[in-house]
Write a protein that binds this DNA or RNA. Structure first.
Lengths: 259, 259
DNA sequence: CATCGCACCT
DNA sequence: AGGTGCGATG
């Protein structure tokens, strides 16, 4: 059986909010390492990969591999019932029909329990090759979200160009063109503003802004987001969570005249 | 060419916000005196007139007359990308296809540049006669905005009556009637609350509240607003900006049974 | 159903 | 000033 207690129901809520528009149904794969999720979006352009390590729960118990096939719209409805600061306990039997979510107020004076029916989902398991990226950019989530939103007012696509000392986001659209240049910066007094570029080779790639704006719904999960780019491979947009847990989005670049 | 740097991108943002619902497209007329704009609203009831004097910019350079025909909805989208405290540089060539807006963060570690395509706009140039108004009322923006909003819940129109020692805003509607009386007041300790009436002749006129509410979007630009009235001529609603710059709205009174 | 824009509220 | 909730729209 599975029994996992999260201190902050909010975390699961934000994770699911960030992916529910990309993926309708998917398996939460549970084993003694934790709870993992991998899914492609409907149009097979983007891929979501979540890992919540066992350490992110206390306690965490999962005797054997269990795949919980869940409709994310149903899950969203249930998670809306979580109030901030509620703890969340996730429970399932070994061959479950349902998963149970229990929300407990801090003082334990309100306990809500929801069961969600499970579904069988045939999941192509996706091997994601480890890549040595040509460039990684770590920047504040809020800044990335702002850039994506601003540029999406002008165009469907953004070109991300990484150089050693800065990163440039640019787009062209019917009403005009836009670009945002961020210089790398580091400030020990305000590390939350850091923009850190790690580059082995300059790279410039073009991506759909609609997807990037969508990924940015995860902004509340972390202070920073890491963008990893290499020519001709999908962009990795990564949010680090506590205890080496993470939420990752992969997005294939646009090629040639698609832009 | 034109090159004009504003210390506060916010000012242009607020000006455009205040007029974008009245006017879709209009020319920004640039010359060595500054940047001016004049346009009638679609229904030809209201007129907007903006003047940003060269002194409001530092530096300001404009070698020859340039008319920048801009779609205000496009401009709004671009100005949304301005963050508070960003500086704004406006640039255009002498016979431009585009106008360039550059937003610079205070530390210069983020520079965003947007180009907006220009359009050809045939503009009837409007001579606005200088009028000696029968009454002028200077009052806090917030107070005027509040009055217009409150009365607009009751009626489409407001009657403004100026007397020597006070001004009365009143309306009648289906659910009842409303009126707000402001006595003139002056307080050296709180000049921001001043209500100053300058009157050569009592006057009472009726105006569309919808337009007045719209004009009040400019309230963030100034502490006070000046209302200038004379019988049978348009109301002037004036916001003074720094360096003798201003934003003015003119609104024709309603006559007779239109009220 | 999802997205967008506006207004309100904190 | 930013976030949230609502209403309207496609």
């Amino acid at each position: 059986m599975l029994e996992a207690r999260m201190q902050q129901a909010d975390v699961l809520k934000k994770v699911v909010d960030a992916i529910k528009d990309l993926v309708q149904d998917c398996n939460f794969d549970c084993n003694d390492a934790g709870i993992a999720l991998q899914a492609m979006d409907n149009s097979h352009v983007a891929l979501v990969s979540m890992m919540l390590k066992a350490d992110a729960f206390a306690p965490f118990r999962c005797d054997r591999n269990i795949a919980l096939g869940i409709n994310l719209s149903s899950l969203t409805k249930v998670l809306r019932a979580a109030q901030s600061n509620d703890e969340l306990v996730i429970k399932a039997e070994d061959a479950p029909d349902v998963v149970s979510l229990t929300f407990e107020s801090a003082e334990q004076d309100r306990i809500s329990e929801y069961d969600i029916k499970l579904m069988d989902i045939d999941q192509e398991h996706l091997g994601i090759p480890e890549t040595d990226y040509a460039a990684t950019v770590k920047l504040p989530c809020a800044e990335f979200q702002r850039i994506c939103r601003d540029l999406s007012a002008l165009s469907e696509s953004v070109t991300i160009e990484c150089a050693k000392d800065g990163v440039k986001f640019s787009c062209q659209g019917d009403i005009g063109a836009g670009s945002v240049n961020l210089r790398s910066r580091q400030d020990v007094d305000k590390p939350e503003n850091d923009v850190i570029i790690d580059l082995s080779e300059p790279v410039a790639l073009t991506f759909s802004l609609k997807y990037l704006v969508n990924f940015c719904k995860a902004s509340g999960l972390s202070k920073h987001v890491k963008l990893c780019l290499s020519a001709e491979v999908p962009l990795l947009v990564q949010y680090e969570l506590l205890n080496q847990s993470h939420l990752r989005f992969y997005l294939a670049p646009k090629i040639g005249d698609e832009e």
